[in-house]
Nucleic acid binder design. Structure first.
Lengths: 296, 296
DNA sequence: CCTATATATGCTCATGTTGAGTATAATAAG
DNA sequence: CTTATTATACTCAACATGAGCATATATAGG
């Protein structure tokens, strides 16, 4: 009964930072792999183990760490199952060391800030429509994922989009060989799916947790904050409204000093204010709850 | 280097349903354990393996299945690490078979619909204030988790609350022996933490995915839907506004028939409408994004 | 010094969403 | 017929959001 539950277990890390207004990840083997290694039993929790392992290997200080997903689909040569536990870790440390690559090399269709992304998407739509032709379930999934038929573009659906492209044979990793492969960087061992999971997760996280601040220096301008959000979301935001939103939540407080002037009026510098972070529900519980209060 | 990554791997399932306006879970060993078993290598993906395993063991049809978290803290007798991959599964099948128990037996403080929950919470606050006395970080965590100091009660923080109680030595499973233990049902092997994770997750899920409908029969009234949500959230909702919200999202469509009248005016019966489910962001992306549309 | 340009910041306003009710409709029980 | 009970419809103030205009403060070039 219990002889079958021995598995090889690996940790996989998506180490993310934002530089040059673009999210970057640490890669290995010429961009085709993510940092991964066997689970050592030295640490009490997996999370602590991962932190220690990555910090030791890379020398970076890690901010927010989050477990993503545990994959068990892979079979080893020896017939044993390989379980891979994936994590996302954020860092603001930017070094030239290590092979950092833009996330959008792997998902060019996810950066809606570039004007030419529409060209890629038009291409995708053409092929994916062919794949979903006559299958209403596929058609609906595509419409929702890619924002067709009056559906809005939902930037959090990175994983759904990647899986559709995989199913339709439009990426190199796919199990079927389509006659057309999208121009984008591939990865081995399904690591690109792990990366898609990470992007979905971070795009969701920045909305209602203060996770972005782990990607910023101690002091920053509101526009730097905005640009970091934009880099992750792959979308432009309305500058004045972004200010209003952030300031109204008291997520940041003024440092009193100003940015080293470049062009134009110098911007105020702010720091993250943890005291306001519990209000960081930019989105949030919109159920029509009746109020509940407890007298402390 | 690779000799250390052999682990025992177990699947753990939180099988949830709602009956009698209360969320229930399937338990074992007199309520002290959850269904768990070794990972068999028969199935291609973990998710499919779990579904087959639970459906075979229990005979229930499972709706929404979701991976919760992978725990690696446990050490076996033989020195090998035990990795436990936990899942939540929803079912609307209600049978008398199996040892189903109310979730609120394990977390009485989470059901804010009962008037006497305030008594429990007052008790908790008394002890937890003592524990956090003079430690501002602890004080802040408690305030946010338990809705003190003008913080609103956030029903999604089930796990945070449980972990605080655990740290403070107020639950039986705790590593430290407090002089006071809260009246609530305990579990072995940290299963209660898994359950807390599941409750946190489902309370988040019902807000912006149509997961609730997996807990309802095919046809239902709006008030049944509301009561199911209330059971999970542990909160009462405003009836008229709940209707408005659900109907405005086109999440349901009328069946044309009416409930078998009990008291009062008979209620219309509805069914879930998957066509509207992509609008199920009751909460959602409230970033001030600039609009993006793609001409299909 | 004056002007053009660039950026930051402040403010307005129409529209939509939410919280908290009041009002009305349709049934059962007495 | 009256009352109790539940379902459903509608109102209204407060607040949040999307979109844009207006002003402030810097640099660069004449």
């Amino acid at each position: 009964m219990t002889e079958a539950n021995l598995c090889r277990t690996d940790l996989v890390a998506v180490l993310m930072t934002v530089r040059d207004e673009t999210p970057h990840i640490l890669t290995l083997r010429n961009g085709s792999s993510l940092p991964a290694g066997p689970l050592k039993s030295a640490h009490r929790s997996l999370q602590k183990g991962l932190r220690a392992w990555v910090e030791q290997q890379t020398g970076f200080h890690l901010g927010h760490i989050e477990q993503l997903y545990t994959f068990g689909d892979t079979q080893c040569e020896d017939g044993m199952r390989l379980v891979r536990i994936s994590y996302m870790a954020l860092t603001s440390t930017s070094t030239d060391e290590g092979d950092w690559r833009s996330v959008y090399d792997y998902f060019p269709w996810e950066d809606r800030r570039r004007g030419d992304t529409d060209v890629i998407l038009t291409q995708i739509v053409k092929h994916i429509r062919k794949w979903s032709d006559g299958r209403s379930d596929r058609h609906r999934r595509c419409a929702i994922a890619f924002g067709l038929d009056n559906h809005p573009w939902n930037d959090e659906l990175v994983l759904q989009r990647y899986e559709l492209l995989w199913e339709a044979g439009l990426v190199a990793e796919s199990h079927i060989k389509g006659e057309f492969i999208l121009h984008s960087r591939a990865m081995s061992d399904d690591y690109r799916r792990v990366l898609a999971t990470a992007m979905s997760r971070i795009r969701a996280r920045i909305r209602y947790t203060p996770a972005v601040f782990d990607l910023l220096p101690m002091h920053f301008t509101l526009f730097q904050l905005q640009q970091t959000m934009e880099a992750l979301a792959g979308r432009f935001m309305h500058k004045q409204n972004f200010r209003r939103l952030v300031l109204s939540q008291h997520l940041v407080s003024e440092t009193g000093s100003y940015e080293q002037a470049g062009q134009g009026r110098p911007a105020r510098l702010y720091r993250f204010d943890p005291a306001g972070s519990e209000n960081c529900y930019l989105a949030g519980a919109k159920l029509p709850l009746s109020p509940v209060t407890l007298s402390s």
